[in-house]
């Protein structure tokens, strides 16, 4: 008879089930970028809607735990998830959807980094996504806890970077790309959002990352927030549909 050292946990059991919970998801794509306000959530939710409209089984996970907004873009306020050997994502406009708002409602979530990591791990360990062609992750800005956790926990995750032509954004996205390249994380490309501003300077082009598309600043987008079908009809939505085809291109449904 042998016995383990009981003074410390053998392993956090959540780690062993994250990959299992994502086992039937063909591709996981994180929508990220260095700065807030560049349109990551709008890109993530619209990409998910566009993929869904094109017949792909699609999920959307809002991992911006302290500033969730994907539900506002989808116009959905799902409550507690259904439980069945784990928790089942909500159905939001045909998209399998999970967000902290299902548990927190509209209350603020004042979480420090360690709490964010713990909550992300918990969500990934208990959510049963089932069979999906795509799981889109709406990431919070920056390269801190959420990004490091996703890189560690979902090793096959691909990234799409969202930038605007602002110098302030370009510099932070450049660092973000530098980090992902250093550790060998796949980057599908950059989406240049709000291109009515100054054109994206050469800094990001030097990274060698593909430009997935330029998305114009669209004044009508604000009135379409909350109605994903209307978002797809805007200029923003049309640009995103083209980007959707590039991302999904060649992949079997």
């Amino acid at each position: 008879m042998k016995e383990s050292n009981g003074n410390k946990p053998i392993e956090d059991p959540r780690h062993s089930v994250v990959e299992k919970k994502l086992g039937k998801v063909k591709r996981v794509i994180a929508i990220a970028g260095g700065k807030g306000g560049t349109g990551k959530s709008l890109v993530a939710a619209t990409l998910a809607k566009s993929l869904s409209e094109n017949g792909y089984k699609t999920g959307l996970l809002d991992l911006d735990l302290t500033g969730p907004s994907a539900h506002l873009i989808l116009g959905e306020s799902p409550g507690f998830p259904e439980e069945d050997n784990g928790v089942i994502p909500a159905n939001a406009s045909g998209i399998s959807f999970s967000s902290i708002i299902q548990y927190a409602g509209d209350s603020p979530s004042p979480l420090r980094g360690g709490d964010i990591s713990n909550a992300i791990l918990e969500i990934l360990a208990i959510t049963r996504w089932g069979s999906l062609d795509f799981l889109i992750i709406d990431m919070p800005p920056g390269i801190s806890d959420a990004m490091l956790d996703i890189i560690k926990l979902v090793r096959r995750c691909e990234f799409v970077m969202v930038a605007t032509p602002s110098k302030v954004v370009v510099e932070t996205v450049r660092k973000n790309i530098l980090l992902l390249q250093e550790i060998g994380v796949p980057i599908l490309g950059i989406i240049e959002n709000m291109t009515n501003m100054e054109p994206l300077n050469g800094t990001l082009k030097k990274s060698g990352i593909k430009l997935l598309g330029k998305v114009p600043y669209d004044r009508s987008i604000e009135t379409a927030i909350g109605n994903p079908s209307r978002i797809l009809d805007t200029k923003f939505g049309q640009s995103m549909s083209e980007i959707c085809s590039m991302i999904a291109g060649g992949k079997e449904k």
């Binding site: 053998i10 392993e11 059991p13 062993s16 089930v17 299992k20 050997n85 928790v87 360990a125």
Partner: peptide, 18 residues
């Protein structure tokens, strides 16, 4: 119940250890 997911984690951990 989401306890099934937590139990799955416990079993997976024990199986890997064993």
């Amino acid at each position: 119940m989401h306890e099934w997911a937590l139990a799955d984690g416990i079993i997976s951990t024990v199986l890997a250890f064993a």
